[in-house]
Amino acid sequence: MGGRILVTEDNEDNRRTMHDLLVSAGYEVYEALTGAEGVSMAGAQRPDLILMDIQLPVFDGYEATRRIKADPALRGIPIIAVTSYALGGDEVKAREAGCDGYVAKPFSPRQLLAKVREYLP
């Protein structure tokens, strides 16, 4: 168990709960507040997994995902999209942008942890 996770999320509470959950589960957590920051931190930290919120300032999670997946050095990092739009089509859009997984808000911490463990057991 363990691993380094980048949480790209602009909402402080969401960031905090994800952080507390993942840290307590034994992961190392980095935080980015915007799509742009997410892309730069992905390059700087080379995390094992990225949790990517979709509604983000500067540019959104889809765009951040596209940029990270366009970088051959970062392409291998799995990205789980976390979207607050529980609408049909979001999952498809996330996959098209290059996301490897998908979690719809609202999620319970336990659901999220289960999803994370699919990639970082």
């Binding site: 507390d20 307590s24 609202p106 336990r110």
Partner: peptide, 23 residues
Amino acid sequence: SHELRTPLNAILGYTELILDDIY
């Protein structure tokens, strides 16, 4: 509804974390 859900999700998230003895 969307705006209401965001803080509510935080409340539920923290509650669950507390109940899971994370803190």
